[in-house]
Design a protein around this nucleic acid. Structure first.
Lengths: 349, 349
DNA sequence: GTAAGTCTCCAAAACGATTTGCACAATGGA
DNA sequence: TCCATTGTGCAAATCGTTTTGGAGACTTAC
């Protein structure tokens, strides 16, 4: 983290010291003020002088130090995006939406990949307290520490994306309509004739997950057994394997997984147990990641507008953050869509 | 981009002005110097005084402004990652590796998603010139402007990831062994008995793409027709459709796509033409994105260590950037692995 | 009793921009 | 001739840190 200017090994080219506004001023025989005005155009400068300054700027390759500029301006035009795992396609899409929105508004985006690690999350949240970023889009993948977030929410520009935090009022929220998604799945399975289902949920405390489950339950109106997972493929596999092992009289004909990854894990476990999808068991996912349409069987799932969630959360947040304001409570619910494919069918009698 | 402190609409809470080191100093009745020393530990401070300072720091919730700190220190502990498309699984994995390496070394990572847009790329490259980032990992998805890059390479810490730029010497490069990957595919197809192949390449000027093709050609030793694509699914589809349309006597029995996405596009086009994979035509991809193993048929492809490429490039770069040095030329070639799955078979006689 | 260390702490100078108040000259009109 | 106006550019303060070089008060040692 610290430099040792003296100890540079031989052969290393050091970054040559860049020109500062003072260097430009000296070379053009004007004051730094004038250089600044030429570049920003905030006050008129005689064309002759301006031309001279511009020529020196080019010759020296002068680029204003953004740090100094930001320090003086009081904002950085950088926004953070905190997500658990960028290699998860859902978050990658969300990130793309966030980056697009940020770019459109002249912001850069710092990627805060937490790997579900609270310590890492803490470090990143520190960036907003140290004012290195003007705001943060928070897309927690696991139940975040409400306490930590609560202290920040009132004082800093933060938006909650995809996931709202239970018990936390007053936040700016952009999220897919998880409950409707659950309902769609419930309807679909009920209409196919299913009456007993296994629901694989996300971690406790995640509103998105509980919303999906409750929407599902409400529309399905049949027997539902719930198992708690963690959104990973492995947990889908494990939960289903365990379920099959302990299963007595209750034999579900359908599985609703909290996301596509878990659905794939579930399918793998079913296969290992000699069960075919959808002949023996129907499986539904959530997210509609690209794999869903290409896998075999193609997965019936709920398309979540990940890109739009990221984009909306960021655009809304920056509307306030750009003015140095804390966003007021507001909710942006984005529509989801059921994608019926080949992993669901009528239950075998 | 500019703030209007006066025009804040009613109901907006403004971010309250954070405490500065001076506020802390005043409240603790010491000088800012002392506060700094208490916090950094760079010089001893009487325990009694230190305790008093710490208590004030807590009470005021003081966090040093990282901007000011960076300005004074001369570096930001932020590194950029420039990629064309974060929603492409390959780059998402690469990004994860980069972020991990950055985090391990105490750096944050700015995501520069260019969408193959040169203007956007330019804007991001400006960040390194304005010294907002200490270095840049450059993973171009299209032939980058050599000129622009050349000017930067000598003066700023930049690492080339995955893609080297033809005609550009002296850079730090971390890349998968594309040529070996091409050879693996060539051998595999030849051993299966294929003699005529269609190679779908990436854009001209991309070393990775030409290396794959040349490795392939060298090992395959049969007839190879080349078509130039752009790494997108759509181009795989289009090229194959065109090829089938114009095909006369030369009928290839195998297709080697420059990446998995193009391979999927190719398979789709083949299907539409009533051809089965691998019965009528074998198809091989490159990258081994997750879909590859889940699709139907599972795709034979070359596993590229995307995560490692990102991680290596970043770790190597920061080794120099952290000392304010420009990295010397060096090449880190990471091994690839052929994944034989279900999309390749012996050619029908 | 004085010289040489220790402990503590502070003042001031960076870092590199932007912003604001003024000074000075030239111009125009009365 | 005098005043007001416009055009042009600079000096100095500011943003919030860190880093030096001392200063002053005590000890300790001879």
């Amino acid at each position: 983290m610290t430099r040792d200017p003296g100890g540079t090994p031989p052969g290393w080219r050091s970054v040559r010291k860049p020109a500062s506004i003072k260097d430009v001023a000296a070379a053009a025989d004007v004051s730094p003020t004038t250089v600044s005005h030429v570049l920003s155009g905030r006050r008129p400068v005689a064309e002759e002088t301006a031309a001279r300054v511009r020529s020196v700027v080019n010759r020296l390759g002068y680029v204003p130090a953004s740090l100094a500029r930001s320090l003086q301006a009081g904002f950085t035009s950088v926004v953070g995006l905190l997500i658990p795992d960028i290699s998860n396609a859902f978050f990658a899409d969300l990130a793309k939406g966030a980056e697009d929105a940020a770019h459109d508004l002249g912001y850069s985006l710092i990627l805060c990949n937490t790997e579900f690690d609270p310590e890492r999350e803490d470090r990143y949240l520190g960036m907003i307290r140290s004012r290195f970023i003007d705001g943060m889009v928070y897309a927690a993948g696991s139940p975040p520490s409400r306490q930590r977030l609560e202290a920040l929410l009132g004082s800093f520009p933060i938006a909650l994306a995809d996931e709202e935090v239970e018990g936390l009022e007053g936040a700016l929220i952009a999220t897919a309509d998880h409950e409707a998604g659950g309902r769609f799945v419930g309807n679909h399975l009920r209409e196919l004739g299913h009456r007993r289902a296994l629901a694989l949920t996300g971690p406790r405390g995640l509103k998105s997950s509980t919303a999906r489950a409750s929407g599902f339950r409400q529309a399905f109106r049949g027997d539902v057994v719930e198992r708690i997972g963690d959104f990973k493929e492995s947990s889908g596999h494990r939960l289903v394997a365990e379920f099959l092992a302990e299963q007595r009289n209750l034999d579900a004909t359908a599985i609703f997984a909290a996301n596509d990854l878990m659905a794939f894990g579930a399918i793998a476990a079913l296969r290992e147990a000699g069960l075919a999808v959808p002949r023996d068991v129907s499986v539904v996912g959530f997210d509609d990641i690209r794999v869903a349409s290409l896998s075999s069987p193609a997965l019936t799932t709920v398309r979540q507008p990940a890109y739009d969630v990221g984009r909306t959360a960021t655009a809304q947040l920056l509307q306030y953050a750009a003015r140095g304001a804390v966003p007021p409570a507001s909710r942006h619910t984005l529509p989801v869509e059921l994608q019926v494919r080949d992993s669901t069918a009528q239950p075998a009698r």
